[in-house]
Amino acid sequence: MSWHLFTIFFVSTFFISATPGPNMLLAFQYGINYGVKRTLWTLAGLSLGLFILLLSTLLGLDVISRQSPWLLEVIKTVGALYLIYLGILSWRDTGHSNLMAEASAVSKEVANLDSSEVFNSSQQPKPRSLSSAAVKVIPSNSKLFRTGVWVSLSNPKAILFFAAFFPKFINFSAPLWPQYIMLTFGLFLSETIWQIIYTLGGKQLAGWLDVGDRLAWLNRACGVIFMLIAAALLAEAISHFIG
């Protein structure tokens, strides 16, 4: 993989990672609730979950590229259509929702799940105030880590995104694993940077993005990236089938 292609990949993932998805919102809210040091355990869990999803995708692409090359072109075509769909959604997302409220909702959703798990395991009624207070109770480091893993793995659409996004930056006629390592490094670098930013300066970042149409323009920029990569994937697939 050339450094030029890697730079394009990193810049693209950096913009995409900046959008406040479930992982970033959880890092944001936990940074406020529990502090930066404790939230590092959650960030580690988010990274592990993301790595599991990414590794599953890359292993699948590796097998398909060696055993069914024609299926790889089908995946590129379907992936391009999926990226077009994501691009349209991103472009139409006005970003008028409040990030503080969204982050709080994500945190409470996780807390409610934890409360239901406690109830199911003990089979004893719990006070109604448990789910609302769960966010305020400081959990153990292992609990913070497991929560990060669960939130990351609970988004299976990430596999669809990886399968749609990564093929554009992979040369399947060259050794794959060196490319996989570079792409994984680039993705995790951009994700880690933004997770730390959301954890350290969540309130300031949320306040800045909630002003005017800034979040909307960030979503539109991501939409353009999705569209451009989709167009490149479709061009590759069409040229392969025609040739």
Rank of each mutant, 00 (worst) to 15 (best):
F172N: 10
F172Q: 10
S121M: 10
L189D: 01
Q67V: 06
T184D: 01
L54A: 12
K143N: 12
C222I: 09
R66C: 04
R66F: 04
Q195E: 03
A158C: 03
F145E: 01
P22V: 11
L53Q: 14
G186S: 14
T57L: 05
P22A: 15
L205S: 03
N171P: 00
K76C: 04
M227V: 13
N155E: 07
Q204N: 06
Y34P: 02
L55F: 08
G21E: 12
M227S: 12
T42V: 10
H4I: 10
K168E: 13
S47H: 04
T39P: 02
I16K: 01
S132N: 14
L183V: 03
A235S: 13
F28I: 05
M182V: 13
A27D: 04
L55Q: 07
V135R: 09
L46N: 03
I138L: 10
S116M: 13
S97P: 00
L26Q: 10
V74S: 13
K168H: 14
W217Y: 14
L25S: 04
L234P: 01
V11H: 02
R214E: 02
A103N: 02
A105W: 01
W70C: 02
L183F: 03
I64Q: 05
L26Y: 02
L26G: 05
F166Q: 06
T19R: 02
N120I: 11
T42L: 12
I138T: 10
L200K: 11
Y34D: 11
M100S: 08
I16T: 07
W177K: 13
S56D: 03
N23M: 09
F188G: 09
D210G: 03
M24W: 00
L54E: 05
L83A: 08
A134W: 01
V74A: 15
T77S: 15
G21N: 13
L54M: 15
L58H: 03
G243P: 01
Y34M: 07
M227P: 00
L40G: 07
A174K: 07
I238G: 03
N33E: 14
K143G: 14
T13R: 07
W217G: 00
A164S: 15
D114L: 11
E109T: 08
T13V: 15
K143D: 11
A230R: 05
K76L: 11
G201N: 07
S239R: 14
H240S: 11
L40N: 02
R92Y: 00
I196Y: 06
K157I: 09
G31C: 10
G60R: 05
S107H: 10
I242D: 08
K126M: 15
T7I: 13
V63S: 08
L153C: 06
